[in-house]
Design a protein around this nucleic acid. Structure first.
Lengths: 94, 94
DNA sequence: TCAATACATTTAAATGTTTCAATTTATCAA
DNA sequence: TTGATAAATTGAAACATTTAAATGTATTGA
């Protein structure tokens, strides 16, 4: 497991500190594989640019990974980053 | 392990999304037991009310636990909350 | 009780985040 | 090429967070 520094942990924490972004992650988790961007418009009551903004924050920290498929974009969870973040948290414990 | 809901995970993420608060947690971890509030003034270059503000956010989410000792307050890491948060993160994975 | 110490609260300025309307870019289907 | 669809960007308003000066509260020792 890679070592994550405090700066990176701070960015991931920030990405996880918003109800919309946690909802997006929950929707991606439910799919167990890939979630299409358009699926979120049904489940999240925000305008398209707002959802786009939240997706950007999640992809910038690599918590989720985007893949272009024609006109659409699909996302998957990046387990490796979550595990690295968990490793950082384990290191905080006494 | 207790089940942590998204609202609680959001609050903990927010508490962890600041460099000063991660620094405070690191200082507490270094002690392996209790850290006195006054120890932070030496290590963190912020005014006393700012440090107090950050400590409040960490204690409000129970990530750290305060204990009064005369005029001083000492803090310890709350491993249980960190473990619950880690449990939530594990649940996000595909 | 009085002065000193440790921490908390209030207030306000500066800064950062969230949101959406409008617009732009990219891709597809006809 | 043209019209339609999917997603990104821009710009601005609303809202939240961070910071510190000033002040308040609680505890101790003299």
């Amino acid at each position: 497991m890679a070592q994550m520094d405090a700066k990176q942990a701070e960015k991931i924490s920030k990405a996880l500190s918003d109800p919309t972004r946690l909802k997006i992650l929950s929707e991606i988790q439910k799919k167990h594989d890939w979630l299409y961007c358009v699926d979120l418009y049904d489940n999240i009551n925000l305008a398209q640019p707002s959802i786009c903004h939240h997706l950007k924050q999640l992809t910038e920290t690599s918590i989720i990974l985007p893949e272009k498929e024609g006109r659409n974009i699909k996302y998957t969870m990046n387990n490796a980053v979550i595990d690295d973040y968990i490793g950082f948290l384990q290191g905080l414990k006494k």
